[in-house]
Design a protein around this nucleic acid. Structure first.
Lengths: 253, 253
DNA sequence: ACCTGAACACCGTTCAAGT
DNA sequence: ACCTGAACACCGTTCAAGT
């Protein structure tokens, strides 16, 4: 990113550093890291809808424009927050098998989202946040998939399948709750589920006790209060088994 | 939803209708449907970031508060927009097999997102938008999965796997582009991909020509300009094959 | 270099007033 | 019932001014 650091100063880092030393100033109270960390804390505490640069500045006890100096623009801040959240999803370097590798990676990603559910809506849906997953992560994943036998075009497929699958489930499991009127909204869902006519929706009604609040589109809580552990485990199994079959197919050249 | 129609009037529909007839008034220029349709048009044209109630009102040539009368609050409007977009994803009533059913469903969902990519960030990440998928859809999906042999707890798993899989890939494929500074942002990504050191990231560099702009987290365009057709097809295959294996496993009772 | 401080255009929502 | 119109508190960003 060309100007994700103080203004257009990115190419002048050495000069800036020298200036700082020369002037002997070490009284900087802010930094990009501090700003981003504070932003994450704000979002964790008060939700994405209530996040604003002004509230962030207030929490840092500075003027709103001081924040803008380190991270220019609201979008950049959110992108950096995603980056920070996903900075600890590094998959293991050693593993028993590529299946084992993927399993650990899926679980690690889910655990990370679980720690910061309010950030979930930003992940996967914003291309600017995609850079949050770094080259180390990508390299290890590609290496594991190569080890599974994927090469060339099929390696690309496998990579996309894994990333889409990894990000997709957990971001949906921890989907954002309505920011106001939650109580009424919840009651309304329960009411709707109670009133489903058995004649028109026999399979749904028959399995309602198993499905209610345990299945996508039939929930009034997200993964924080009603985790979908068993479904997630089955999901990971399905993707891995499917990949095994894909890996076993001949590689067309 | 208790008050998704004019104020707290929802239980008074008959009375209101009578009043309208009695007073002979048919000069309503707005309606909930008109408001939501206009909102979708605005989002399609100018993106989610530029959407506001005031711009919406301007496009309808009314005051901002007139909109609020039909759909109370910005969040409600967005939820209704998602509902409208997803109203045509109904899976087919007849099909050769449950595998065929799922294939058609996945493709239909992706086609729908492709038609309204700017809405993608709202789908799956907002619990309030989950009601967009109606009971007819759910019933047909559950019926197809029952036909595949899934019952009880495993039916719930299969349902969650399919919904998460269906929503996850396409919403990520059509992820939102940065709303400003796109040109610099794109150049920066390309620059970063050119500069990847082969010593540290051998697998990535080796497959770079296949991966760049064709793989998640390595793109500077979304599905609108750079569709991931082949990866999506492989993704659907993987999930279906995985489900076949899950279906074949014994149902623990 | 780093932050203050005022200013600007815009936002969603509330509330009173019209018809 | 349906919409106007003014008002309110808040927002992100720009730009000049301090040190």
């Amino acid at each position: 990113m060309p100007n994700d650091t103080p203004r257009a100063r990115s190419k002048l880092k050495k000069v800036a550093a020298r200036d700082k030393v020369a002037s002997g100033r070490a009284d900087k109270s802010l930094s990009k890291e501090v700003v981003v960390a504070a932003a994450l804390t704000e979002i964790d505490r008060h939700g994405l809808d209530n996040f604003s640069l002004r509230n962030l500045a207030k929490s840092l006890k500075v003027f709103p424009t001081a924040v803008t100096w380190y991270v220019p623009g609201r979008g950049q801040i959110l992108a950096e927050v995603v980056k920070l959240v996903l900075s600890d999803i590094m998959p293991p370097r050693f593993y028993d098998s590529w299946q084992h590798f993927l399993r650990l990676m899926f679980e690690g990603f889910r655990d990370t989202i679980r720690r910061h559910p309010n950030v979930a809506p930003l992940i996967g849906t914003q291309l600017i946040a995609n850079q949050a997953i770094d080259f180390d992560f990508i390299e290890r994943l590609l290496a594991a998939l190569s080890h599974a036998g994927f090469t060339g075009q099929r390696l690309v497929w496998a990579y996309n399948i894994v990333v889409a699958g990894m990000v997709g489930f957990s971001t949906q499991e921890f989907a954002q709750l309505p920011s106001e009127g939650i109580k009424d909204w919840r009651e309304d869902i329960k009411e709707r589920l109670r009133g489903v006519p058995v004649a028109k929706y026999p399979t749904l009604v028959k399995n309602m006790s198993l499905l209610r609040n345990k299945a996508f589109t039939l929930r009034w809580q997200n993964g924080t209060d009603a985790p979908l552990d068993a479904s997630f485990a089955a999901y990971v199994d399905v993707i891995i088994k499917g990949l095994e079959i894909l890996a076993a197919q001949d590689n067309p050249t």
